[in-house]
Design a protein around this nucleic acid. Sequence first.
DNA 1: CAACTATGTTGCCATATCGCTATATAACGA
DNA 2: TCGTTATATAGCGATATGGCAACATAGTTG
Lengths: 121, 121
Amino acid sequence: MARKSPTTRNRKPATPKPLSDSALEMIAHRFRALSEPVRLRLLSTLMAGERNVTQLVEAAGTGQANVSKHLSVLKQAGMITTRRDGLSTICFIADPSIHQLCEIMCAKLKAEHQERIKALG
Amino acid sequence: MARKSPTTRNRKPATPKPLSDSALEMIAHRFRALSEPVRLRLLSTLMAGERNVTQLVEAAGTGQANVSKHLSVLKQAGMITTRRDGLSTICFIADPSIHQLCEIMCAKLKAEHQERIKALG
DNA sequence: CAACTATGTTGCCATATCGCTATATAACGA
DNA sequence: TCGTTATATAGCGATATGGCAACATAGTTG
């Protein structure tokens, strides 16, 4: 008889895992963290190395309160981590896979851009 | 002397390009397309092969009007393409890089989940 | 053309999010 | 403790977005 642990109740056949609603929500939540220009600017800045909030405010070109909110969004999404150093809060990228994500997306953009140019030429 | 094709004119030094505001907006726009559970469900379904809208409505578990809207968002973001076949509109994934994006994000989720479990154990 | 099916579009409500201002908290030094 | 700097939080208005229902449109069939 098939394996059937008490914690793992009757799984449906062996479909390629339809991804549960909650999983989709978590994934969506993370993508949403990357869906704002200001947050991308913050991440882009942090990719060059860790920065404190004041530095990020300068780089972001928006108010300190906003930056603080955006940073907490990124933090909650596991994109960045913070460390306290005296008065400053130092931020840095928590997961290098963010680089990959952005690179893939940029490559997509460039590819589409090329196609658009071709289509016109 | 260095390679210097006519199509590749004077590139700026080798600064890691701070990414223009408009570029960030475009990238953000694409990530936003992936930031909704229903849209992820649609993409997830399409990863198994092309489907018409009716099939997607069933898979999405929400109304047809919503699915139509979500599909147009995905289409505008270059994630999917559609083709008309009689009464049906067949949808399919336009860019395989979406697989990569989702896989990376899923891997992140799993990794964090593992850590959470470790932290408790 | 009429009836039917599959999709797309519009209007509305509820909710979420951005940016701003003002205020609160934290950490440091005099 | 008081003042100052760095950061976080709360409150607000404006805008965006998801979902629903009603309606519009396209394509098929008789």
